[in-house]
Amino acid sequence: MCGRFAQYSSRDEYFESFGLKADEIQYDPEPIGRFNVAPGTKVLLLNERDEELHLDPVIWGYGPEWWDKQPLINARGETAATGRMFKPLWNHGRAIVPADGWFEWKKEGNKKQPYFIHHKKNQPLFFAAIGKAPYNKDHGHEGFVIVTAASNKGMVDIHDRRPLVLTAEAVREWLSADTTPERAQEIAHDAALPEKDFTWHPVSRKVGNIHNQSSELVEEIDDPVT
């Protein structure tokens, strides 16, 4: 995790959740409408630049010049702040992915059943992310990764890792250039939503094809793989 997620609400729905006023950021009020966001595509990323909030399209994936493998899409929250690969991004490239939920696949025999995981009250989610700043410039394969946390309190039956979802109240401090790397570690530990705030249901296996983007992909199905 996280290998696929949904970002379909309107920008104002995301922003209103953490108290952002209309005059604090320029954005399109139309729904984003992406029900099947895949790695390697550009994702709208909330970030702070020059003491202002911005929403920029940024490649989901990170592979610096010396990295000879596929770009990484996730970073473990337990080690991202100190490891060689991600420490510079943690210090200077913290961002937020506004989202509505994410997908996980559970193996059932020789098949895999996808599930859509979302907030129990259908509230917007804010995935902690880190990447190559500034985000208004093209850095090639050096985009961003989603920070993940362990799923050890109720969600492990779906997957043992999940996105680090921050509370709405923590978003601005996470993004702020005034927030120290050490304080960001505290936020990641103390301001993450617990597993009990989420629910999930089986969805169509059509989500496995990145070309499928309709709203039916997040709808519960009656005949999951068993």
Rank of each mutant, 00 (worst) to 15 (best):
R162L: 06
N74E: 00
G154W: 13
T167Y: 14
A191D: 15
K206N: 15
E78V: 09
Q213P: 03
D223R: 14
L72E: 06
D28W: 04
R49W: 07
Q7F: 11
V145K: 12
D100F: 01
G131W: 08
Y8I: 04
W102K: 04
E24G: 10
A22V: 06
F127N: 07
I25P: 15
G40P: 14
N122Y: 14
E104Q: 07
A128G: 07
S151G: 09
L217K: 13
W90E: 02
N74H: 08
Y27K: 06
H141Q: 11
A191I: 01
P88V: 01
P39N: 15
K87F: 05
H54T: 00
G140L: 00
E108Q: 13
L53S: 02
V58Q: 10
C2F: 09
S204E: 11
M155R: 05
W90D: 03
Q213V: 02
N122K: 13
P39F: 09
G40M: 05
A128R: 09
D223F: 12
A191C: 12
A168C: 03
L217M: 11
E13G: 03
K21P: 08
M155V: 05
A133G: 08
D138T: 08
Q113K: 06
N152M: 06
H118F: 04
G77Q: 00
I96L: 10
I96H: 15
V37K: 06
T199D: 00
P134S: 04
N122V: 03
L125N: 00
L20I: 10
R4F: 07
V37G: 01
A150N: 10
D222G: 07
A80T: 09
E52M: 10
C2L: 06
R183Q: 00
A150E: 13
N91S: 12
L175K: 12
G208N: 06
N122H: 15
W60H: 09
D178I: 08
P71N: 08
L89W: 10
H189A: 11
T148M: 06
Y27V: 07
K196Q: 10
D160W: 03
L166I: 08
F198C: 09
I146P: 06
S214R: 04
T199W: 00
D190Q: 13
N110P: 00
H141F: 05
Y135V: 09
K137T: 07
W105H: 07
S214L: 04
D50F: 15
A99Q: 05
Y115R: 01
H119V: 02
F86E: 08
V43C: 06
A99F: 02
D190N: 12
P88W: 01
D222W: 00
Q26W: 07
D28A: 03
F86V: 09
P114K: 08
K107P: 01
P57L: 11
S17P: 05
D23T: 12
W102N: 06
A149Q: 07
Q123Y: 10
W60G: 05
A177Y: 11
I187P: 07
P134R: 11
F127A: 04
V218A: 05
R162P: 10
M1I: 13
D56Y: 02
V171H: 12
L166R: 14
E78S: 02
I117F: 01
V203H: 14
T167K: 15
H139D: 01
